[in-house]
Protein backbone atom coordinates (compact mmCIF):
# COMPACT_ATOMS: atom_id res chain seq x y z
CA UNK A 1 0.00 0.00 0.00
CA UNK A 2 1.48 3.38 -0.97
CA UNK A 3 2.11 6.12 1.60
CA UNK A 4 -0.17 8.44 -0.39
CA UNK A 5 -3.10 6.05 -0.01
CA UNK A 6 -2.35 5.41 3.68
CA UNK A 7 -2.06 9.09 4.47
CA UNK A 8 -5.20 9.79 2.44
CA UNK A 9 -7.05 7.40 4.74
CA UNK A 10 -5.52 9.05 7.78
CA UNK A 11 -6.57 12.47 6.53
CA UNK A 12 -10.13 11.28 6.01
CA UNK A 13 -10.20 10.24 9.67
CA UNK A 14 -8.65 13.52 10.70
CA UNK A 15 -11.52 14.66 12.96
CA UNK A 16 -10.71 15.33 16.58
CA UNK A 17 -12.68 12.48 18.10
CA UNK A 18 -10.23 9.58 17.39
CA UNK A 19 -7.45 11.57 19.06
CA UNK A 20 -9.60 12.54 22.04
CA UNK A 21 -10.72 8.94 22.39
CA UNK A 22 -7.12 7.69 22.21
CA UNK A 23 -6.17 9.95 25.09
CA UNK A 24 -9.24 8.92 27.12
CA UNK A 25 -8.14 5.32 26.61
CA UNK A 26 -4.60 6.24 27.70
CA UNK A 27 -5.97 7.45 31.07
CA UNK A 28 -8.39 4.55 31.34
CA UNK A 29 -5.57 2.01 30.82
CA UNK A 30 -3.64 3.75 33.55
CA UNK A 31 -6.54 3.67 35.98
CA UNK A 32 -7.47 0.10 35.16
CA UNK A 33 -3.93 -1.11 35.61
CA UNK A 34 -3.33 0.45 39.00
CA UNK A 35 -5.43 -0.73 41.95
CA UNK A 36 -3.74 1.70 44.40
CA UNK A 37 -4.96 4.60 42.21
CA UNK A 38 -8.44 3.15 42.15
CA UNK A 39 -8.49 2.61 45.93
CA UNK A 40 -7.25 6.15 46.53
CA UNK A 41 -10.04 7.49 44.32
CA UNK A 42 -12.72 5.65 46.30
CA UNK A 43 -11.13 6.05 49.72
CA UNK A 44 -11.19 9.81 50.37
CA UNK A 45 -14.80 10.63 49.37
CA UNK A 46 -16.06 7.60 51.31
CA UNK A 47 -13.99 8.45 54.38
CA UNK A 48 -15.17 12.07 54.32
CA UNK A 49 -18.81 11.03 54.06
CA UNK A 50 -18.33 8.59 56.96
CA UNK A 51 -16.77 11.32 59.10
CA UNK A 52 -19.25 14.08 58.25
CA UNK A 53 -22.12 11.65 58.59
CA UNK A 54 -21.12 11.02 62.20
CA UNK A 55 -20.67 14.74 62.84
CA UNK A 56 -24.10 15.40 61.30
CA UNK A 57 -25.70 12.80 63.55
CA UNK A 58 -24.25 14.46 66.59
CA UNK A 59 -25.23 17.96 65.49
CA UNK A 60 -28.75 16.99 64.52
CA UNK A 61 -29.64 16.81 68.20
CA UNK A 62 -27.34 19.60 69.31
CA UNK A 63 -27.47 22.26 66.63
CA UNK A 64 -30.50 24.10 65.34
CA UNK A 65 -28.54 24.92 62.15
CA UNK A 66 -28.02 21.29 61.19
CA UNK A 67 -31.47 20.32 62.42
CA UNK A 68 -33.00 22.70 59.81
CA UNK A 69 -32.11 20.40 56.99
CA UNK A 70 -30.88 16.86 57.00
CA UNK A 71 -27.84 16.55 54.83
CA UNK A 72 -26.61 20.13 55.09
CA UNK A 73 -23.22 18.76 56.10
CA UNK A 74 -23.19 15.40 54.27
CA UNK A 75 -24.60 17.01 51.12
CA UNK A 76 -22.00 19.74 51.36
CA UNK A 77 -19.12 17.33 51.79
CA UNK A 78 -20.29 15.29 48.82
CA UNK A 79 -20.60 18.35 46.60
CA UNK A 80 -17.19 19.53 47.78
CA UNK A 81 -15.80 16.13 46.77
CA UNK A 82 -17.35 16.60 43.31
CA UNK A 83 -15.47 19.88 42.97
CA UNK A 84 -12.24 18.50 44.37
CA UNK A 85 -12.35 15.28 42.31
CA UNK A 86 -13.13 17.09 39.07
CA UNK A 87 -10.16 19.39 39.65
CA UNK A 88 -7.91 16.47 40.59
CA UNK A 89 -9.17 14.44 37.63
CA UNK A 90 -7.71 16.87 35.13
CA UNK A 91 -4.65 17.75 37.19
CA UNK A 92 -3.68 14.10 37.65
CA UNK A 93 -4.04 13.35 33.93
CA UNK A 94 -1.75 16.28 33.27
CA UNK A 95 0.72 15.22 35.96
CA UNK A 96 0.86 11.69 34.53
CA UNK A 97 2.22 13.15 31.29
CA UNK A 98 4.74 15.23 33.21
CA UNK A 99 5.88 12.33 35.39
CA UNK A 100 6.24 10.01 32.41
CA UNK A 101 7.93 12.75 30.34
CA UNK A 102 5.55 11.93 27.52
CA UNK A 103 4.72 15.45 26.32
CA UNK A 104 7.37 15.25 23.59
CA UNK A 105 5.76 12.21 21.98
CA UNK A 106 2.22 13.52 22.45
CA UNK A 107 2.80 16.83 20.73
CA UNK A 108 4.72 15.37 17.83
CA UNK A 109 1.52 13.47 17.07
CA UNK A 110 -1.36 15.44 15.49
CA UNK A 111 -2.91 15.91 18.96
CA UNK A 112 -4.00 19.52 19.51
CA UNK A 113 -3.77 20.93 23.08
CA UNK A 114 -7.54 21.55 23.12
CA UNK A 115 -8.17 17.91 22.14
CA UNK A 116 -5.94 16.85 25.02
CA UNK A 117 -7.96 19.13 27.28
CA UNK A 118 -11.20 17.52 26.08
CA UNK A 119 -9.77 14.06 26.84
CA UNK A 120 -8.74 15.18 30.32
CA UNK A 121 -12.24 16.57 30.96
CA UNK A 122 -13.87 13.27 29.94
CA UNK A 123 -11.40 11.33 32.10
CA UNK A 124 -12.10 13.67 34.98
CA UNK A 125 -15.86 12.97 34.68
CA UNK A 126 -15.16 9.23 34.75
CA UNK A 127 -13.05 9.69 37.88
CA UNK A 128 -15.77 11.73 39.59
CA UNK A 129 -18.41 9.08 38.89
CA UNK A 130 -16.18 6.21 40.07
CA UNK A 131 -14.98 8.12 43.12
CA UNK A 132 -18.39 9.37 44.26
CA UNK A 133 -20.46 6.21 43.77
CA UNK A 134 -19.39 4.44 47.00
CA UNK A 135 -19.62 7.68 49.01
CA UNK A 136 -23.24 8.16 47.88
CA UNK A 137 -23.94 4.49 48.72
CA UNK A 138 -22.43 4.80 52.21
CA UNK A 139 -24.47 7.92 52.91
CA UNK A 140 -27.70 6.13 51.95
CA UNK A 141 -26.91 2.91 53.80
CA UNK A 142 -25.47 4.31 57.02
CA UNK A 143 -27.15 7.69 57.41
CA UNK A 144 -30.34 7.20 55.40
CA UNK A 145 -29.53 10.35 53.50
CA UNK A 146 -29.62 10.37 49.72
CA UNK A 147 -28.13 13.38 47.98
CA UNK A 148 -30.62 12.66 45.17
CA UNK A 149 -33.44 13.97 47.41
CA UNK A 150 -32.26 17.42 46.32
CA UNK A 151 -33.85 16.59 42.99
CA UNK A 152 -33.01 18.39 39.77
CA UNK A 153 -31.11 21.21 41.50
CA UNK A 154 -28.45 18.60 42.27
CA UNK A 155 -27.70 18.36 38.54
CA UNK A 156 -27.21 22.13 38.44
CA UNK A 157 -24.93 22.09 41.50
CA UNK A 158 -22.82 19.22 40.18
CA UNK A 159 -22.52 20.91 36.77
CA UNK A 160 -21.42 24.23 38.25
CA UNK A 161 -18.88 22.63 40.60
CA UNK A 162 -17.52 20.33 37.91
CA UNK A 163 -16.89 23.24 35.57
CA UNK A 164 -15.24 25.13 38.42
CA UNK A 165 -12.94 22.15 39.06
CA UNK A 166 -11.95 22.21 35.38
CA UNK A 167 -10.94 25.85 35.24
CA UNK A 168 -9.07 25.66 38.54
CA UNK A 169 -7.06 22.70 37.25
CA UNK A 170 -6.39 24.59 34.01
CA UNK A 171 -4.92 27.48 36.00
CA UNK A 172 -2.80 25.08 38.06
CA UNK A 173 -1.59 23.07 35.07
CA UNK A 174 -0.70 26.32 33.31
CA UNK A 175 1.50 27.21 36.29
CA UNK A 176 3.17 23.79 36.17
CA UNK A 177 3.69 24.09 32.42
CA UNK A 178 5.33 27.45 33.07
CA UNK A 179 7.36 26.63 36.18
CA UNK A 180 7.88 22.86 35.86
CA UNK A 181 7.38 20.11 38.40
CA UNK A 182 8.65 22.43 41.14
CA UNK A 183 5.11 23.83 41.19
CA UNK A 184 3.59 20.34 41.52
CA UNK A 185 2.31 20.92 45.06
CA UNK A 186 -0.20 23.44 43.67
CA UNK A 187 -2.24 20.48 42.45
CA UNK A 188 -2.99 19.50 46.04
CA UNK A 189 -2.85 22.94 47.65
CA UNK A 190 -4.94 24.92 45.17
CA UNK A 191 -8.38 23.64 46.11
CA UNK A 192 -7.80 23.81 49.85
CA UNK A 193 -6.88 27.47 49.51
CA UNK A 194 -10.35 28.09 48.07
CA UNK A 195 -12.26 25.98 50.60
CA UNK A 196 -12.56 28.68 53.32
CA UNK A 197 -14.09 31.17 50.88
CA UNK A 198 -16.36 28.58 49.26
CA UNK A 199 -18.78 28.62 52.21
CA UNK A 200 -19.05 24.84 52.09
CA UNK A 201 -20.21 24.25 55.68
CA UNK A 202 -21.35 27.73 56.75
CA UNK A 203 -23.22 30.61 55.10
CA UNK A 204 -21.39 33.50 53.47
CA UNK A 205 -23.16 35.83 55.90
CA UNK A 206 -21.27 34.24 58.79
CA UNK A 207 -17.91 35.22 57.29
CA UNK A 208 -16.09 38.47 58.15
CA UNK A 209 -17.48 41.37 56.12
CA UNK A 210 -14.21 41.98 54.28
CA UNK A 211 -14.08 38.36 53.12
CA UNK A 212 -17.66 38.15 51.87
CA UNK A 213 -17.03 39.83 48.46
CA UNK A 214 -14.24 37.29 47.85
CA UNK A 215 -16.65 34.46 48.66
CA UNK A 216 -19.36 35.85 46.36
CA UNK A 217 -16.79 35.92 43.55
CA UNK A 218 -16.46 32.14 43.89
CA UNK A 219 -18.93 30.00 41.89
CA UNK A 220 -18.60 27.42 44.68
CA UNK A 221 -19.98 29.82 47.31
CA UNK A 222 -23.00 30.49 45.06
CA UNK A 223 -23.56 26.75 44.74
CA UNK A 224 -23.30 25.99 48.45
CA UNK A 225 -25.63 28.89 49.27
CA UNK A 226 -27.98 27.47 46.64
CA UNK A 227 -27.74 24.03 48.22
CA UNK A 228 -28.72 25.44 51.61
CA UNK A 229 -31.66 27.29 50.02
CA UNK A 230 -32.88 23.98 48.59
CA UNK A 231 -32.42 22.13 51.88
CA UNK A 232 -33.77 24.83 54.23
CA UNK A 233 -36.34 26.65 52.10
CA UNK A 234 -37.15 23.90 49.60
CA UNK A 235 -36.73 26.17 46.59
CA UNK A 236 -34.10 26.54 43.86
CA UNK A 237 -32.50 29.99 43.61
CA UNK A 238 -31.97 30.57 39.87
CA UNK A 239 -30.10 33.77 40.53
CA UNK A 240 -27.40 31.98 42.52
CA UNK A 241 -27.07 29.30 39.84
CA UNK A 242 -26.91 31.83 36.99
CA UNK A 243 -24.26 33.82 38.85
CA UNK A 244 -22.23 30.65 39.47
CA UNK A 245 -22.35 29.69 35.79
CA UNK A 246 -21.63 33.25 34.68
CA UNK A 247 -18.55 33.37 36.91
CA UNK A 248 -17.54 29.93 35.68
CA UNK A 249 -17.81 31.10 32.07
CA UNK A 250 -15.70 34.16 32.78
CA UNK A 251 -13.03 32.27 34.72
CA UNK A 252 -13.00 29.45 32.15
CA UNK A 253 -12.22 31.91 29.36
CA UNK A 254 -9.39 33.35 31.46
CA UNK A 255 -8.09 29.87 32.31
CA UNK A 256 -8.12 28.76 28.64
CA UNK A 257 -6.25 31.92 27.66
CA UNK A 258 -3.71 31.28 30.44
CA UNK A 259 -3.28 27.63 29.36
CA UNK A 260 -2.73 28.64 25.73
CA UNK A 261 -0.20 31.25 26.81
CA UNK A 262 1.60 28.71 29.03
CA UNK A 263 1.64 26.19 26.18
CA UNK A 264 2.96 28.79 23.76
CA UNK A 265 5.64 29.76 26.29
CA UNK A 266 6.56 26.07 26.78
CA UNK A 267 7.08 25.72 23.02
CA UNK A 268 9.23 28.81 23.03
CA UNK A 269 11.40 27.52 25.87
CA UNK A 270 11.57 23.92 24.71
CA UNK A 271 9.83 22.76 27.88
CA UNK A 272 7.69 20.20 26.02
CA UNK A 273 10.80 18.08 25.55
CA UNK A 274 12.57 18.77 28.82
CA UNK A 275 9.78 19.30 31.24
CA UNK A 276 10.66 18.50 34.83
CA UNK A 277 11.95 20.18 37.93
Amino acid sequence: MSLDRIHGEVERRAGSWPRIWAMVMRYWYLLRGSWPRLVEMLYWPTLNVLLWGLISRFFQGNSSYVAQGIGVLIGAVMLWEVLFRSQMGIALCFMEEMWSRNLGHMFVSPLHPLEWLAAMIISSLIRVVIGMAPAVGVSILLYHYSIFTMGLPLVAFVAALTVMGWWISLVITSMILRYGLGAESLVWMGMFALEPVSAVFYPVASMPAWLQPVAWAMPSAQVFEGMRTVLFQHRFDWHLFATAMGLNGLYSLGAIALFRAAFHSARKRGALLNVGE
Partner: peptide, 11 residues
Protein backbone atom coordinates in the same frame (compact mmCIF):
# COMPACT_ATOMS: atom_id res chain seq x y z
CA UNK B 1 -1.46 -0.06 25.11
CA UNK B 2 1.16 2.58 24.35
CA UNK B 3 1.18 1.67 20.68
CA UNK B 4 -2.64 1.53 20.58
CA UNK B 5 -2.87 5.04 22.06
CA UNK B 6 -0.45 6.43 19.48
CA UNK B 7 -2.20 4.55 16.69
CA UNK B 8 -5.34 6.38 17.80
CA UNK B 9 -3.58 9.73 17.86
CA UNK B 10 -2.49 9.16 14.25
CA UNK B 11 -5.98 8.02 13.26
Amino acid sequence: QNLAVYAGLYG
